[in-house]
Amino acid sequence: MSDELVGDYDLVIFDLDGVVYLIDKPIPGAAEAVERLRGAGTAVAYATNNASRRAADVADLLNGMGVSADKGEVLNSAGAAAAVLAQRFPAGSPVLVVGAEALRAEVRDAGLTPVSTLEEKPVAVVQGYGPEVGWQILAEAALSVRAGAVWVATNTDRTLPSPRGPLPGNGSLVAVLRTALDREPDVVVGKPEPGLFTTAASLSGAQRPLAVGDRMDTDIQGAVGAGMDSLLVLTGVSGPAELLAAPPERRPTYVSADLSGLFRPADEARLPLRAEEAGGWRLDGSKLSGSGDPVTALRLLCGVTWDGVHPEAIEAASPAAADLLKKWGF
């Protein structure tokens, strides 16, 4: 695999939503990519901000989709948040849980006591995504934080990818409390914090890990913060317009349409591509002409916008370029 992008790495850390699956539907090629890595002896891990499933449940879900996984390879923000609370508070301490049953179970397994009302005097509020979260538990959480409880968020993803389009994520629910309390959470555990990435690397003993994600504000920023190379795949939340406008802390090492990019030469995915011509495309200043693979055009344009040209200043100088820029929202 030395001629492939992934050949330079000894661990691939996959995000899940938008990379491997969309809610409960596998993304085409994901299972094949994982098996190809395993066949080559490359370690695999899964790091997800979604706190609605436990690690064993995530592994079962993946295996049911044909994506091989062991629960020890899964790191999620629910388990990480429970571990943070267990380090801070004595065993048995009451913790108000906003989220799915999986988060309550993680809190319970960490030796703490899940509660759901202010009257139970919680020492902390832990907030994670749950499709059944409603006003009543959010109200109890707001009252508890005002009474002095520590507020821990598993993650602040604004949206969740789905086959129907982006849906409200935990960050949207955190925003409800942020508005009501006029303050930020005391601790945010998941990506873009680097902890899930560094833990995955530590557990596998990897010296050269690669993070693969679909969100620049969580997956890619988290990888940058952890000092890891990263691959952005365009199967989930972040798209070309966001990549072109990315600040340095959110810029991936590579970009690919999907996971097949792992097995192509690194130079076909590396960012930015600073050249006047490539793959049928041509750049004349900020004018794009020609036609070819959209990802090649995107890499060329990153070389311009990352050097200071505003993405809105990009112009099309061919019909194919005009169609592509329109598809990207320009």
Rank of each mutant, 00 (worst) to 15 (best):
A78F: 02
L210P: 00
L96N: 04
P26S: 12
R38H: 11
H310V: 14
S68I: 14
A51T: 09
K191S: 05
P272G: 09
A316Q: 05
P192T: 10
I23M: 14
L271P: 01
A200K: 01
S202L: 15
W281S: 02
A91L: 14
G222M: 02
P247W: 11
D284T: 15
P163R: 10
L118F: 09
L103H: 02
T156P: 00
G190F: 02
A266N: 08
E101V: 13
V6D: 01
G171E: 06
M228T: 07
V174G: 04
W328R: 13
D24N: 11
D186R: 06
V176L: 13
G285T: 09
G99Q: 06
K191W: 02
L324C: 03
A91D: 14
L22Y: 07
G92K: 12
V20C: 13
G190H: 06
V189F: 01
N50S: 13
A91V: 12
G66I: 10
G111C: 12
G72V: 05
P168K: 13
T218F: 01
G308V: 10
A33E: 04
L262V: 07
D284L: 11
Q136C: 10
V309C: 12
W328D: 10
F263D: 07
G195Q: 11
G227D: 11
E32M: 04
Y46V: 04
S2Q: 12
A153W: 02
L160C: 06
E132V: 15
S256H: 05
T42K: 13
V309G: 03
R53W: 05
A147V: 06
A82R: 00
D60F: 13
K327R: 15
D57R: 15
D258K: 10
E132H: 15
G134A: 12
G222V: 02
E32G: 12
G148C: 13
F197D: 00
A245F: 05
V34K: 02
V295Q: 04
G213R: 03
G261F: 04
T235K: 06
L324N: 01
Y21N: 04
K327M: 11
P163Y: 09
R36D: 05
G134F: 07
K287I: 11
L37T: 04
V98E: 10
W306V: 10
V12D: 01
T48V: 13
A257G: 15
A321Q: 01
Q87G: 14
V19A: 01
T48G: 11
L103T: 03
A80Y: 06
E277R: 11
L62D: 05
A200N: 05
D267S: 13
V34M: 07
P166K: 15
T48R: 09
A78I: 04
D307Y: 08
V123H: 11
P94W: 06
V107H: 02
A83I: 03
S52D: 11
